[in-house]
Write a protein that binds this DNA or RNA. Structure first.
Lengths: 147, 147
DNA sequence: TGACTCATGTCAGCATACTGACATAACCTC
DNA sequence: GAGGTTATGTCAGTATGCTGACATGAGTCA
């Protein structure tokens, strides 16, 4: 299979490599989260909430990079499972500030440690300086794409 | 909304930034591909096929970062639309070598140009050296994650 | 005040990708 | 050659995320 051919463009494309890295990271995260009954989307939502309590559905959607409709069904699930709470009615506007329950915090703890270990592994071949450089360059890409 | 709080970990996390960059890239690609009646997955498949004719379904799946089942339904669609062809039976083993049709090649051309422009925009704020560094560091992350 | 714009939460329908499962072909090892 | 392992294509069912649409609340501006 894979009549490997000549060194093709994809092998030199930063875009493709970016996708590959992101994909590998996600897969690695799923692997460590699955045994904990968690997945990347749920973890991301809980982590975001732990760090910024009171975020609205739309805020969370933007932070997790899904639509607010998708986040809405996720929040309904998390609410039903008792991991998060939302007030019955909005204190202001329509936005419902979401918060972790104690159960949600406990559930997040293990997951957070597992994910941290993955990120450490990902960075294991890089010096601190290189990590800073990577951060700066990725940030530059994001900004350029937004414009 | 977004009671922005203190500088949280997510803002410093390379993993989160990697996801953000990948997400922004995908969104930008979708934006330029949509007017052409194309999407990222279809484009990726066609581009891979153009650069490595004869790849099997499973090969393509790995290259596009989806399961071979997903790639299979995509290939069936592309086949029905006349963009790719697969032999009725495998020349060896079970793998069916896939190839672009002339129609598929033409369909890919515009898309390829559009995507190239996005990648150029993404790299616009970086020097050639910085691009090399970014490539090397991303590659390091991928390798570390695989181990 | 009234009209306009924008952001939000949510419902419904659809598209896409995944997991599970099965049969089959090639390879390896004894 | 027999048996085990791996890779492949494909079917089926499920899960997840998206687009479209609507009503509502807040801010803006004439």
């Amino acid at each position: 299979m894979s009549q490997d051919g000549n060194g093709v463009d994809l092998e030199k494309s930063l875009g493709y490599l970016l996708k590959e890295a992101s994909s590998a990271l996600r897969a690695a995260m799923e692997d460590v989260l699955r045994p904990l009954g968690m997945n990347v989307t749920r973890y991301s939502c809980l982590e975001l909430l732990a760090q910024r309590p009171g975020l609205s559905n739309s805020d969370l959607a933007r932070g997790v990079f899904v639509t607010r409709q998708s986040m809405n069904v996720l929040l309904q699930t998390l609410e039903r499972e008792g991991l998060v709470t939302r007030p019955a009615e909005a204190p202001v506007g329509k936005a419902l500030p979401t918060r972790l329950t104690p159960l949600g915090e406990r559930s997040l703890e293990q997951a957070s440690a597992a994910v941290r270990s993955v990120e450490i592994r990902m960075l294991s071949g890089m010096t601190e300086d290189e990590q800073s450089v990577a951060f700066r360059l990725l940030r530059s890409m994001v900004l350029s794409l937004r414009s």
